[in-house]
Structure formats: structure tokens, C-alpha cells
Design a protein around this nucleic acid. Structure first.
Length: 850
RNA sequence: GCGGGAGUGGUGAAACGGUAGACACGCUGGCCUUAGGAGCCAGUCAGGGUGACCUGGUGGGGGUUCGAAUCCCCCUUCCCGCACCA
């Protein structure tokens, strides 16, 4: 056994404590929580407010590396803004209603509420391991009545103002999840459910809708908010505004039909009206039955049956040959009185425009394909400059060039395209046969779900004849029953839960039946950030004063996958609630950032079934939260994401250990080997310059969320400190300043190690303990970011030829004199004439020679 | 098909129109250590040269510029969104 007195005293490991993140991190997390360091005083108006929001998680039960990827850099924003003096509000909550809880319930028999709350408990613990500064006092959990009663209240306000309504609709139904989907929740050409990937089918059901279309134009306007271009483009395309005209055709008289009925079509090309050679109705068009001639009835009926049998996928497959049948009736073109045949075809969609089109095969690819297939006439009515009027068309000519002119268009022939467009619309309008018109692709938001685990829609169907009766506000919430049972045959268990179902009509007091549909969970997430401000308030959904003080959200972070769902619904809610007087702003999120996605190491989306999921807990227990945070920041630009590769985490972990070493052990042991660096007379200044340059760069990187280059700069500074470690520079004020700045810069991104080293630093200098996270962000010294010598790059004809050491700020003539005196420059000029010399702000010289 | 984004070492990536490859990973060599999946130092785009250096090089081809990874045009590949929307 070794005698304790004989053990070497100077071993580095014994003198300096090791960096053990798993020991210090929980400790600091606990202290921060105890000190309520991150509880925001919402009434404090003495500082600038900063509402920082990150998309709240679904409580699936496991925190994913993707949660870390979005949330820990967002936490760095929060910490940085606090160091800059802002009053930061950074709340967190749980998007707690939804299908996975029900699927778990069906599978294992556990009630969705129990499953969800248990997961939330677990995820709260996991979220705390990030060391993030969430204000847990403001937490919202959407499956609790204290939250969802306000979903119901909002629903009633929308109902009252006509923004919520009920109608029969052909809806997308997921047979696996047994649920109706909003249009946005059906994905791809295959028409699959966004959650489970099952192909959806069409069903006719009475459904509740929110009238988002009322705000279509306002939703197209992004002025004043800073959102990423791709999201704005996606929302714009999704809303799909088309300007054109509605043109009224009339049905022609025929042996089986008196004619004279109006057939409206929407077109973006009224200028091509003379080229309309037939008309096509969607198979579902209401006039199909009355217009069909006896001779065509059998054929039309067969086509309708076939269409109904076709899945959406087959109908929407653009490669498929066009199909259709004539219905044996004609329409009259209002512009020239011509009779054109009416067809039905499934390429015309009943849900868009008027469900009927005028077909102009010469100038529309789809109509062209249809006309070719069925031998219908093709008449050119638009010609490019230089094209003869009757130049044959091997394919549709769809250009909308303003230099085109109208041909074969009666009185409009020869007019430039834009003039023809305007005059045809104007002339139709005077005869009540058409008018300018705008159509949108966006449909109203279908919010009914035939599921039990959601917010009950607060209406009653009176059995005494009062109809659909809203629940009075003072009777909210309509509580979700706790005793519903899932049945083997599927369906909504609420329909079989008598205690819930049977009720009295609020109007007449007679027997009534509750609505068993619940709301889409996207209703919950369309307003949750307002609820964070007063999560327990019982008298209102949103605290008006706090809304005025704190909203809109200054910075929102989250994934781009919600581009046309959550992010669009939230904007809609904001505008609707503003019109209802609930809030004052019309846009919810001032600035939006979409982080990239972390993929599995195989480059595929992380999923349990692929077995490529990276568990953050395991990494945290091995390297600590700070290393995981830093690694995620260091792997590349934040908006890029990328495949997971664990190899690099060693690098950032090594960096933190080095920061630990330079901070606690500036002198090291092997001083004798540092003679080269020690001889550097200007070491102190070089160190200060390195520190202040890093500070300047890091400050800039914060503004653009450029975490990767920020970490790189801190690595460089640490490397510089390491070079001077053990030299005479190590004990100086310059060293002290550089290592102080290093810790302050580390604080937002690696909060635990920064706090630990900061506390040791204060302790060793006898200063009262104070959290680094209450310190101010330092300012760099402009005099220290310029060094006293530069190596001026010299190019000859744009190629680098020499680096000339000199003092910065010399006059151009002097710079030229020194540059031209260089042998290497001389050698390159040999035998050539100098044309000119370009000076780039003292940063570079380019000598142009011939 | 339409719209958006992106192609830079073996890898992740840097680079206000101005020294291409910062910072890391990996690899190679050295030091230290009883040992180390610990730490420290050096090297690492390709080709040539003992070397200071020279030549080529940012998916391909053109252009603008004293100067282009960066701006413009054409082509090409990959990723994302929409997809018969009249």
C-alpha cells in the first residue's frame, strides 16, 4: 500500500479536478431551478421584452435528438438575449391530445390520459437534462380542461361570427386511424395519411369547418414579418390565388332539354374564349343528371360509377390517359353564340372553381390531350409575334407573353393579348355574361375528428327540434369523460359512452345528444403561445393586457414540416381572434426560423422501425449535455440538419476539456518546452487581439444563429490560450481577460461548464459567488480587433503572388512602393507592362499587367 | 410538369465579389505514459520539387469583372414542397 506522503504532488490530475459533466450538470440545473433563475416576470416593463417560442413537443414519451437540435440552440438565444438585458420569456408545454395516445390505449388498454400524463412526466425530466432555461411556471398541457375549455370557447366565438360551420362533405378518411383528415394532412401523389402512411378513402360525412378561406388574401400578405422564403412560397402556393374571370355559358335547346340554364366556368384565360371548342363538367357537377340526353344516359351512368370507384390516386395521376364521355347536350359560348358539346371528365375537379371548364385545347395542355384523344376540334386563338394565324399546333401553346396577339377571335382579332383579355371581360360584364373573378385553391379547414382523445366540440343536437345548439359559455368546459372504452370494431368510443352522450338541450331543456366529434389537435396549437401568458386564468382564454405587452412572439423556432398546417392555421387564428377583439395583433410570429432535420446515420428519417434512432440520453450520460449541445451546433448551419454521425462529438468534448484546462490550469507543467512562445514579446497583445476578435465574431454569429462558426471561433481562442499555457503570458492580465471572455462567450451555448468554471474563478479571486448567466454580454474593444502588422496579399492578374508584411493604414503610394520592391512581385512583372494597380481597402492589392 | 433549396478535400464544413478549404472528424508521424478508446506537438486538396515554391482545383459549359465557390445565362445531379387547380 502506498504511503500517502510519498505520492507525487504535481501530477496534473491531482492538482486540477477533472471535467466531469455528469457530476456538475445536474448540480447546476438544480441550483438554477432553486434560484428560479428563469421564471419570467411578465409585468416587468423596465427591460425590453423578448418572447422566444419553440414548437411545443408531442409527449410521445421519448425526447429525440431532433428535439435537442431545435431546442438547445433556441435556449442559447434565450441566454444570449438575457445577457444583453432583455426580459426573455421562453416557455414550454405539451401538445397533449392526439392519435398516438389512442393507439397506445387500444393496444395496451391503458387510458390515453394516463399514457399521456406519464409521458409528460418523463419528458419533463428529459427536457431538464438539456439545461435549457424554460419557464416551467408557464407550462401548458393541452389535454387538461383548464386548456381545452378555451378551445371550446374559441370554437363558440367562431361559430357565433360565422367562422365555424357544419356541412356535408366528401372527406378524406384514414381507414387505419379511423379518422377524417384535413386536406393538408393527406400527402403525396399516393394520397396517404400524414401520420400512418395508409392510403385514404373518400367518405361523405357531416363535418365542422373553420372558414380560413375568408382570410385567403390577408394570409398571402407577409409584409412586416420575417419568415423564411420557402415557407412563404409554400403558403402562397397552398392558398393558390388565381385571377381570371367567371364566364357564363348557357345550355342550348335540344330535343330532351329546353335550354337556357346557366353554366358558369372559371378561367384564367378569358382572352382565349373564341378557342373554346367544348365544355367539360366534373362528374359530380349538379347539372349532369338533368342535362344528360336519354341516348347518353347509360354511358354517362357507367362513367359516373367508374369514377366513384376510382381512388383519388388514380384520378390524380397526371400520366394517365384522359377519360370522359359526352352527355349529349350543348352549351352556347356567350361571346360568339356557338354551340359546343358538353362532356364530363374526371380531370375536372368538382371542388375547384365552379366545377366546370370551357375547354380551349389550343392553349391548355390538358384540354389539348383530351381533344386529341376524342377527336375534338382545336382552334388557335393566340399567336406569338411572327406566327401565322393558322400555324398548326403540335401541342398546346400556353405562353402568356404580353407580345402575343389574338387571332380567329371575331372583333377582337389582332388585339395584343392583354388588351383582348381586358376587353373580352369588360364586354361580357356589360351583358351579365361574365365578370372578373378570383379563385383560391385553399379550402376551409376541416376540424372534426371522430376520435375520443381530443377537445369535445361544444354543441348539442336537440331531439326536440331546436336543432344544433351551442353550449352556453358559462357551462364550459364540456368535459371529456374518463370512462370511455375502446371497442374491438373501432370507431369513436364517445358514441357509445352514454354518460357523455345523453344530455339536455340548453335551449329547451328536453333530451339532447352531444356532438361526439372532437377537434383536430391543430386547433390546440393554433393559439397556445397566448395561453403561456396566463395558463391558469379562469376568466379568459387570453389575457388582453399581457397580449398587448408580449405579443407577437419575437422569435419562433421549429420545423418546416408545419408550413401549410400549424403555421398557416396559427396565422388564421391570429387574424380571426383579432377580428373578435380577443387579441390586438394580426400576425402571431414576428420572426420564424426553421431548423433542418437530423437524419439517421443512413441518411433516412430517424424512426424506430428503421432502427436508426439516436438516443440523446445515452450521449448525455457519456459526454454531458454541454457537449451534445455544442456538437449539434457545430455540425453545420442550423437550417441544414443532416445525417447523424457520432464521430464528431469527440471533437467538441475535447474542446470543452481544453477550455477546462486553460481555465483552471494556466501554467501546466512543461514550461521548459514553451520557449518559442515565451520568446514572443508581444504575446500578451496577441492574446488580447485573439480574444476580442473572437468576441466580435461570436457577437455577429449570434445575430445570424451561426452556431457552427461561433463554436469554431471559441475553439480557435482556446487553441491560442493553449499555445500560451505554461509560458510567462499565462499569469498576466491579458491571459485573465482572454479566459474571462472565453467563459462569458461559452455561457449561452455550454451553460453548465461556463457556470462551473466561472464559480471557481470567482472563488479563487475571493469574489462573491454570482451566476455567469446573470452577467452582461461583454463588448469588444475596437482598438484590439486590429493587429499592428498585416500580411498584405498581393495578386498579379488576380493570382496570389506574395504576402507583404506591413503596418495597416499606409498610404496607397507607400503600399505600392513596398509591394513593387518585393523580389517575388518583380519576378512576376518581368517583361510585362503594369496596366493598373487595384487597392482593396488596405486588404489586398491586385497588379494588372499586360 | 410547376415552385423552392443545394452540389467545395476521405468526412462534417469555412470563405462582406478579394489569400479557397477556417474549425473539427479521420488518418500519418512524434512526445509523454506501466498502460490507455487519456493528454501534448507536427503533418494532411491533388500533381511536381529536398526546399522556399510551381501548376491545377469549388458538378459541367459560357459570360460579367482587375479579380467569381460567390453575380448572370445554359446544362446536369440530388433533396424538399405541390401536383390534371382550368
Amino acid at each position: 500500500m502506498t504511503d500517502i506522503d510519498t505520492m507525487p504532488l504535481t501530477s496534473e490530475r491531482d492538482r486540477v479536478p477533472r471535467y466531469e459533466p455528469t457530476v456538475i450538470e445536474p448540480l447546476w440545473q438544480q441550483r438554477w431551478a432553486d434560484a428560479q433563475l428563469y421564471k419570467t416576470d411578465l409585468s416587468d416593463t423596465s427591460r425590453r421584452k423578448f418572447y422566444l417560442l419553440t414548437m411545443y413537443p408531442y409527449p410521445s414519451g421519448d425526447l429525440h435528438i431532433g428535439h435537442w437540435y431545435i431546442k438547445t440552440p433556441t435556449d442559447a438565444i434565450a441566454r444570449y438575449r438575457r445577457m444583453n438585458g432583455d426580459n426573455v420569456f421562453f416557455p414550454i408545454g405539451f401538445d397533449a391530445f392526439g392519435l398516438p395516445a389512442e393507439n397506445a390505449a387500444i393496444k395496451s388498454g391503458i387510458h390515453p390520459a394516463q399514457w399521456t400524463m406519464r409521458n409528460i412526466e418523463r419528458m419533463r425530466g428529459q427536457l431538464r437534462t438539456m439545461g435549457a432555461t424554460f419557464d416551467w411556471a408557464s407550462e401548458v398541457v393541452t389535454c387538461l380542461p383548464e386548456y381545452y375549455r378555451w378551445n371550446q370557447w374559441i370554437f363558440l366565438q367562431l361559430l357565433k361570427s360565422g367562422l365555424a360551420y357544419r356541412k356535408m362533405a366528401a372527406v378524406d378518411w384514414c381507414p387505419k386511424d379511423q379518422v377524417v383528415l384535413a386536406r393538408e394532412q393527406v400527402e403525396g401523389v399516393d394520397r396517404v395519411c400524414w401520420r400512418c402512411g395508409t392510403q385514404v378513402i373518400k367518405r361523405d360525412l357531416e363535418q365542422w369547418f373553420f372558414r380560413i378561406t375568408k382570410y385567403a388574401d390577408e394570409l398571402l400578405d407577409f409584409t412586416g414579418i420575417e419568415w423564411p422564403e420557402p415557407i412563404r412560397v409554400m403558403q402562397t402556393n397552398w392558398i393558390g390565388r388565381s385571377e381570371g374571370a367567371e364566364v357564363v355559358f348557357t345550355t342550348a335547346e335540344s330535343p330532351h332539354h329546353a335550354g337556357g340554364e346557366q353554366l358558369k366556368v372559371f378561367t384564367t384565360r378569358p382572352d382565349t374564349l373564341f378557342g373554346a371548342t367544348f365544355m367539360v363538367l366534373a362528374p359530380e357537377h349538379p347539372l349532369v343528371v338533368t342535362l344528360t340526353s336519354p341516348e347518353q344516359r347509360a354511358e354517362v351512368q357507367a362513367y359516373l360509377t367508374q369514377t366513384r370507384r376510382h381512388t383519388e390516386i388514380e384520378r390524380l395521376n397526371t400520366d394517365r390517359d384522359k377519360t370522359g364521355v359526352p352527355i349529349g347536350a350543348d352549351a352556347i359560348n356567350p361571346v360568339n353564340g356557338e354551340r359546343i358539346p358538353i362532356w364530363i371528365a374526371d380531370y375536372v375537379l368538382s371542388g375547384y372553381g365552379t366545377g366546370a371548364i370551357m375547354a380551349v385545347p389550343a392553349h391548355d395542355e390538358r384540354d389539348f390531350a383530351f381533344a386529341e384523344r376524342f377527336g375534338l376540334p382545336i382552334t388557335r386563338v393566340i399567336a406569338a409575334p411572327g406566327d401565322p394565324d393558322d400555324a398548326p399546333l403540335p401541342q398546346a401553346y400556353v405562353s402568356k407573353a404580353t407580345t402575343d396577339r389574338l387571332v380567329n377571335s371575331g372583333p377582337y382579332t389582332g388585339l395584343p393579348m392583354p388588351d383582348g383579355f381586358a376587353r373580352i371581360v369588360a364586354d361580357l360584364a356589360t351583358r351579365d355574361a361574365g365578370s372578373p373573378s378570383v379563385t383560391y385553391r385553399i379550402r376551409d379547414w376541416l376540424v372534426s375528428r371522430q376520435r375520443a382523445w381530443g377537445t369535445p366540440i361544444p354543441v348539442v343536437y336537440c331531439e326536440g327540434g331546436c336543432g344544433i345548439v351551442p353550449i352556453p359559455e358559462d357551462q364550459l368546459p364540456v368535459l371529456l369523460p374518463e370512462d370511455f372504452q375502446y371497442r374491438s370494431e373501432g370507431g369513436n368510443p364517445l358514441e357509445h359512452t352514454e354518460s357523455f352522450l345523453r344530455t339536455t338541450c340548453p335551449t329547451c331543456g328536453g333530451p339532447g345528444r352531444r356532438e361526439t366529434d372532437t377537434m383536430d389537435t391543430f386547433v390546440d396549437s393554433s393559439w397556445y403561445w397566448w395561453r403561456y401568458l396566463s395558463p391558469k386564468a379562469t376568466e379568459h382564454a387570453v389575457d388582453g393586457q399581457l397580449d398587448a405587452a408580449w405579443c407577437p412572439v419575437d422569435q419562433y423556432t421549429g420545423g418546416a414540416e408545419h408550413a401549410v398546417m400549424h403555421l398557416l392555421y396559427s396565422r388564421f387564428f391570429c387574424k380571426a381572434l383579432a377580428d373578435l377583439g380577443v387579441v390586438t395583433e394580426r400576425e402571431p410570429f414576428q420572426r420564424l426560423f426553421n431548423q433542418g432535420q437530423i437524419l439517421g446515420s443512413d441518411g433516412e428519417r430517424m424512426s424506430k422501425s428503421r432502427g436508426n434512432v439516436q438516443d440523446p440520453d445515452e450521449l448525455v450520460s457519456r459526454y454531458g449535455a454541454d457537449s451534445v449541445r455544442l456538437f449539434l451546433m457545430f455540425m453545420g448551419p442550423w437550417d441544414q440538419g443532416g445525417p447523424w454521425s457520432p464521430s464528431g462529438i469527440e471533437g467538441v468534448h475535447r474542446f470543452l476539456r481544453r477550455a477546462w484546462t486553460v481555465s483552471l490550469d494556466p501554467h501546466g507543467q512543461e514550461t521548459s518546452e514553451r520557449t518559442a512562445a515565451a520568446a514572443d514579446a508581444d504575446g500578451e497583445r496577441a492574446l488580447l487581439v485573439a480574444a476580442h476578435r473572437a468576441l466580435q465574431g461570436v457577437t455577429e454569429d449570434h445575430a445570424g444563429f451561426r452556431w457552427n462558426t461561433m463554436v469554431a471561433k471559441l475553439m480557435e481562442l482556446t487553441n491560442t490560450l493553449m499555445r500560451y499555457r505554461g509560458t510567462p503570458v499565462a499569469g498576466t492580465a491579458a491571459w485573465d481577460e482572454a479566459s474571462r471572455l472565453l467563459l462569458l462567450m461559452l455561457a449561452p451555448i455550454a451553460p453548465h461548464i461556463a457556470e462551473e468554471l466561472w464559480s471557481r474563478r470567482l472563488e479563487s479571486s475571493g469574489v462573491m459567488a454570482r451566476s455567469i448567466h446573470t452577467e452582461s454580454w461583454p463588448a469588444f474593444d475596437p482598438a484590439l480587433v486590429v493587429s499592428d502588422t498585416i500580411e498584405l496579399p498581393v495578386q498579379v492578374n488576380g493570382k496570389l503572388r506574395d504576402l507583404v508584411p506591413m503596418a495597416p493604414g499606409l498610404e496607397q503610394a507607400e503600399v505600392e512602393r513596398r509591394v513593387l520592391a518585393r523580389p517575388k512581385v518583380q519576378a512576376n512583372l518581368e517583361g510585362h507592362t503594369v496596366v493598373k494597380i487595384v487597392h482593396v481597402g488596405g486588404r489586398l492589392v491586385n497588379i494588372v499587367i499586360r
